[in-house]
């Protein structure tokens, strides 16, 4: 297959396939979790599950009292990575065109130099957390193959995207194919790995807040 044929495939059937698997997998995962259900709580409630659940979804995004160096590192590197990744994903002209081709919606882009910075910061944060995953005994103990696999899958679109913008390593067409494929693999992987936290984090936080909120505690 020529790189043009590859490009046609990854922009067409490849994208449809990966997006389809992503949506199917994620819907499956969320529905399966929800319909697994939980027992009705017969104790007399002291607070609202809904309200506290929603509040926890919001408040868990921030620093909490008694946080340690590990916590600060996690939150700072976590935010740097997540913001870097999301801004790069959502505010590069080329990416907006992709979303527009899907949804018909578009929004203003950020200048390429800003996107370069966010992508580099995203990669730097990922490198930092990887080093820490090896260096920190707690994280090292908790880590399994999936943590490293997900790291690779996440860093690839950022790195190939940067190479693409700065025209390095491979001819543009081939690199564009590699970049799009790396994104598609990431899409497919999200529902079946810990990356599914992009959606289930809201469910988990809600349950946490709801369980504590039922007792009148804002978790």
């Amino acid at each position: 297959m020529t790189s043009t044929e590859w490009l046609i495939w990854v922009r067409g059937p490849g994208l449809q396939l990966s997006l389809g698997i992503f949506i199917l997998g994620m819907t499956y995962r969320i529905m399966q979790t929800y319909f697994l259900g939980r027992a009705k709580n017969l104790a007399e409630p002291r607070g609202s599950q809904w309200l506290h659940g929603m509040k926890t979804i919001w408040w868990r995004s921030f620093f909490h009292p008694g946080m340690t160096i590990r916590g600060y590192f996690t939150i700072i590197s976590g935010y740097t990575f997540h913001l870097g990744f999301i801004i790069t994903l959502l505010f590069l002209d080329q990416h907006i065109e992709l979303f527009r081709s899907w949804t018909g919606l578009s929004w203003p882009a950020l200048p390429p130099i800003v996107i370069t910075i966010t992508a580099v910061l995203g990669i730097a944060a990922l490198v930092a957390v990887l080093v820490d995953r090896f260096a920190d005994p707690v994280r090292y103990l908790l880590s399994d193959y999936q943590d490293y696999l997900c790291w690779v899958l996440t860093v690839l679109p950022l790195v190939t995207g940067l190479l693409l913008v700065y025209k390095m390593w491979l001819p543009y067409t081939s690199l564009l194919v590699v970049h799009i494929i790396s994104f598609e693999i990431l899409l497919v992987a999200i529902p079946f790995t810990k990356l599914s936290h992009v959606f289930t984090i809201f469910i988990a936080r809600w349950y946490n807040g709801a369980i504590a909120g039922y007792k009148g505690v804002q978790s």
Partner: peptide, 16 residues
């Protein structure tokens, strides 16, 4: 149950 499933699904092994 559902909370347990959502918790394990979401854990990113951050160690916090």
């Amino acid at each position: 149950d559902a909370p347990v499933a959502s918790f394990f699904t979401t854990c990113v092994h951050c160690g916090m």
